[in-house]
Design a protein around this nucleic acid. Structure first.
Length: 734
DNA sequence: AGCACGCCGACT
DNA sequence: GTCGGCGTGCTC
């Protein structure tokens, strides 16, 4: 009898599995698909994943090696996940070994037998409690930290402290030295709260949605929960999850990167009678492994996380929720370029459980799926509570003299709202002081040495910075070409608007929120706290300000420049602009004072703006869908984008040209190849970039084509001298 | 991607 | 004489 052959996924960019003989003396019963296994690979030992067992192999006997050791007694990937990942590897054309191993927590990728040591958290000691009662007048920082600790008798970890305190470590050290605080290691998730909050009353639409969805638990259903901002989608999720937990099953909740805030997690923990495992980028490897274990052991009834949490083990699957399903962060933008939203739908289907895609501004893809009858449509048309929709004002700024980007009308309205002690929110999707620095004498522009881009002026830090490669230099005092000291910052950024606002409204307290003001850990949380505490009058920011946060005191929203999305090279720009405008608008308005949204534009007659202003997202989406259908773009066609980059100016284009040749003749039943062309920003970080677009009306056709074509591309002589990648269903077209 | 092998230039 | 440059080839 011959030995079985193990098919192993190896973390390498090679697009295949590798065959091995079983480890010496291995128990055949121990060789289950989904276990990790040590194997010799080339000249090193690696951790691979057993995906299957066969009896035959094409590999010649002399090449076939013996695996070294079985590492797991229980599979780390269930059959269900193995199948999903195999499918994803084929669909996204990404090497199977990288796909499989990436689905595991880093600790399992690296270590044969990781040890869970527990995560650090801190608690007050009885002496600490006594100290608070005595009062600490001379040490305000210590007092503040003690207050936080007192509010969390079950203990608080580093990530949570980061969100509430700046530079807390030295202060904490003092408290530990005094014996007021002790560090403990927690081995499991915090247990569910002893006194859970009661669910609030639902609106009729919320109740209808919950009932409809609850009636469908136990089998696959994909529903689009189309709920305007403020309509209470989260409450629908919570009540649905309560039923899933009551049935002894698990719910997986995926949220966008910026959506996963401590407040959201708190809300889940305060309501749900189950341990909640949280997976996000700020976790260290130990914490990530702990959350993964809690999911796999079924201890966590809810797993909430960003994109990669999709691959969490779910021994008792009951429900998947994708919140803000239109959000771009569900698509990974490098390496394994998967869409967590799309794969989640497939996972739910394979698990035969329901999935809910929630959004106030659904993606055109999802709306299309509703029309095709693939998704069920549930809508929450009203804002919960007494909140009213804001009124839109389309402000024509053509020919107007703008004061640092602000029209007279917007300034006047701001004054009105500020006089009524309301908050005003201004949105400008450009950070820094000015996007261009020009010499008034000779016309010189500050350009990045490594990119085809202007350098942005950051006046506060006296820097010129490239927003594409991150390089920076001192702000010059004089033109490097003609030495004239007459350099003009041109155009607007949030920093400049902030300065202008401060001059225009000297008494207003202004808070700017963009990547520059929130870089420090915990800085965003602190600014948000100030806003909620009413310590701000004007909020100014980039899209960070638009997503996920709720500002009940804001009654006026101003979009300084809505035009960039209307006529862009990227066919998705207008969809995104619309979603952003409605999201920003959703920040305004509450019971007593309905909000206003002023949109400054040079295209006041654009029908898309009119549809948004009428709160008619369906009509807006319909217009865009018709455009997409006409242009044969997604969701009416499938796309794949091959990107290439190289230091040599011609290499990327030449490589893609060769790739195009390698595709052979294109018939009418074959996908269309468009390009290669230089990328919209050809040079970035010192590399020249190009792209080749593949388009087909049929997904399957595109799949089959890519599968054969990529093998040929890999055999091209330049395929190792040029950095290249495939992006199936690309969202960003450059 | 790693990693080793291999064949030509300037060094203790 | 050899250290090391990165081209080329392989990974069951």
């Amino acid at each position: 009898m011959s030995e079985p052959v193990l098919q192993i996924a190896i973390p390498t960019p090679l697009r295949r599995l590798f065959d091995y003989r079983p480890p010496a003396g291995a128990d055949p019963a121990a060789l289950q698909a989904g276990i990790r296994i040590h194997v010799p690979f080339g000249h090193r030992q690696v951790i691979g994943l057993l995906t299957g067992i066969t009896q035959t192999t094409e590999v010649p006997q002399h090449k076939l090696k013996r695996a070294t050791a079985v590492l797991d007694s229980v599979p780390v990937l269930s059959a269900e996940l193995l199948e999903l990942l195999g499918w994803a590897s084929r669909y996204y054309q990404h090497p199977i070994g990288e796909v499989m191993l990436n689905a595991l927590p880093a600790l399992l990728r690296r270590e044969a037998q990781p040890v869970w040591r527990g995560s650090e958290h801190w608690q007050l000691t009885p002496a600490g409690i006594a100290a608070i009662n005595e009062g600490l007048k001379r040490a305000p920082k210590q007092a503040a930290l003690l207050a936080t600790l007192r509010a969390r008798p079950e203990g608080i970890n580093a990530a949570e402290l980061d969100s509430e305190h700046l530079n807390w470590r030295p202060v904490l050290k003092k408290l530990i030295d005094k014996g007021w605080v002790e560090m403990n290691l927690r081995s499991t998730l915090p247990p569910p709260s002893a006194n859970l909050l009661q669910p609030p009353a639902l609106t009729s639409a919320q109740r209808a949605a919950v009932e409809q969805l609850a009636g469908q638990l136990g089998q696959f259903h994909c529903s689009l929960l189309d709920g305007v901002t403020g309509s209470g989608k989260t409450e629908v999720y919570l009540q649905l999850i309560e039923r899933v937990i009551a049935a002894g099953r698990q719910a997986l909740v995926l949220v966008p990167e910026i959506g996963l805030t401590p407040q959201l997690v708190e809300r889940f923990r305060a309501r749900l009678n189950t341990p909640v495992a949280v997976l996000h980028s700020a976790l260290n490897d130990q914490e990530r492994y702990a959350a993964w274990l809690a999911a796999r052991q079924g201890e966590a009834g809810v797993i909430i996380g960003t994109r990669s949490a999709l691959f969490s083990p779910l021994p008792n699957p009951g429900l998947i929720i994708i919140d803000e399903e239109h959000d771009l962060s569900f698509k990974q933008q490098d390496g394994f370029r998967y869409s967590a939203r799309d794969l989640a739908v497939l996972r739910a289907q394979k698990l035969d459980i329901p999935i809910v895609l929630g959004s106030a501004t659904p993606s055109l893809e999802s709306l299309h799926n509703v029309r095709q009858g693939r998704y069920q449509h549930l809508s929450l048309p009203e804002r919960a509570g007494a909140a009213v929709f804001p009124r839109f004002i389309i402000q024509d700024v053509r020919g107007q003299k703008l004061e640092h980007g602000l029209s007279a009308q917007l300034l006047a309205r701001m004054q009105q709202h500020l006089d009524q002690h309301s908050q005003v929110l201004l949105f400008l999707n450009r950070r820094g002081f000015a996007p261009v620095l020009m010499c008034h004498a000779c016309g010189w522009h500050a350009r990045c040495a490594r990119c085809d881009a202007h350098l942005t002026v950051h006046r506060g830090q006296h820097k010129l910075r490239c927003h594409h490669c991150g390089s920076e230099q001192r702000l010059p005092g004089a033109c490097p070409e003609c030495q004239t000291e007459d350099l003009l910052p041109m155009g607007l950024g949030t920093e400049r608007v902030e300065e202008a606002l401060q001059a225009r409204f000297p008494d207003a307290r202004i808070i700017r929120i963009d990547r520059d003001t929130t870089r420090r850990k915990g800085a965003l949380q602190e600014l948000l706290r100030q806003i909620h505490a009413g310590e701000a009058d004007i909020l100014l920011g980039t899209q960070m300000l638009a997503k996920g946060h709720h500002f009940p005191e804001v009654t006026l929203v101003g979009m300084l420049d809505a035009d960039y999305g209307l006529y862009s090279a990227d066919f998705r720009a207008s969809e995104r602009m619309g979603q952003l405008i409605l999201q920003v608008a959703g920040r305004a308005g509450r019971a007593e004072r309905p909000g206003e949204v002023m949109i400054q534009t040079h295209h006041p007659d654009n029908p898309l703006l009119a549809q948004l202003a009428a709160h008619d997202y369906p009509a807006f989406a319909e217009t865009l869908l018709q455009e997409r259908a006409q242009a044969e773009l997604p969701p009416y066609a499938s796309l794949a984008l091959i990107r290439a980059e190289a230091v040599d100016p011609r290499a990327a284009l030449d490589f893609l040209q060769a790739a195009r040749q390698a595709a052979g003749p294109t018939g009418s039943d074959q996908p269309l190849l468009l390009g290669p062309v230089p990328s919209p920003m050809e040079r970035r970080a010192g590399r020249y970039r190009a792209q080749l677009l593949v388009q087909s009306g049929d997904r399957q056709t595109l799949q089959r084509f890519l599968q054969h074509w990529l093998v040929r591309i890999e055999q091209l002589p330049d395929s190792r001298r040029v950095r290249w990648s495939v992006d199936v269903d690309p969202l960003e077209m450059f």
